[in-house]
Amino acid sequence: MVKKHLKETAILRRFAIIEVLRHEGTMHIGDLAQKFQVSKQTIHKDIDILTVCFNIQVKRGRYHSGVCLICDTGAKADTLNAAQVICLCTLLARVTEDERVILLSILYDFAPGFHSPSPNAKTA
């Protein structure tokens, strides 16, 4: 039961990271860690997982490092939110090839910044 709770907490935190990046723009890893009260290492892992389904740019440097969500369009009413995208990406590994094509078409059409995960990418 504890493992399930931790997984759900991680998913909710990842959803929140995407929302913060959408609203704040570039954020430092340390600021995200402080905001979500987790370690920088946890944020790095979250960002690695999120880059499977989101176009996230990681800027490395001593003084100007950070992460930002790259997307061509702003959030609109007809777009998927981060939780929906994460859910659909999780399903990609569990469906038939025909269903995968449908899910990918939904993601491409309604998730700004989405790029297709590789077949053996981690999503949870």
Rank of each mutant, 00 (worst) to 15 (best):
V2I: 13
K3A: 14
K4F: 01
E8C: 14
F15I: 01
I17C: 14
I17T: 09
I18H: 10
L21N: 06
L21H: 09
L21G: 06
R22S: 04
R22T: 03
H23Y: 02
H23E: 03
H23Q: 03
H28K: 14
I29R: 15
I29Y: 11
A33V: 08
K35I: 01
K35C: 02
Q37D: 06
T42E: 02
H44D: 03
K45R: 15
I47N: 13
D48K: 09
D48F: 07
I49K: 10
I49V: 04
L50P: 07
T51S: 12
F54C: 10
F54P: 14
I56P: 12
Q57A: 10
Q57K: 10
V58Y: 10
R60L: 10
G61T: 02
G61F: 00
Y63M: 07
Y63L: 08
H64Y: 09
L69A: 13
I70H: 14
D72A: 14
K76I: 01
K76M: 00
T79C: 13
T79Y: 12
A82F: 01
I86N: 14
L88H: 03
C89A: 05
T90E: 07
T90G: 04
L91H: 04
L92R: 10
L92Y: 04
V95T: 04
D98R: 15
D98H: 15
E99I: 01
R100F: 02
V101T: 01
L103I: 02
L104R: 09
L104T: 03
L104P: 00
D109I: 00
D109P: 00
F110M: 07
A111F: 07
F114R: 12
S116E: 13
S116P: 01
P117K: 00
S118T: 14
N120C: 12
N120D: 12
N120I: 02
N120F: 12
A121R: 11
K122R: 14
K122D: 12
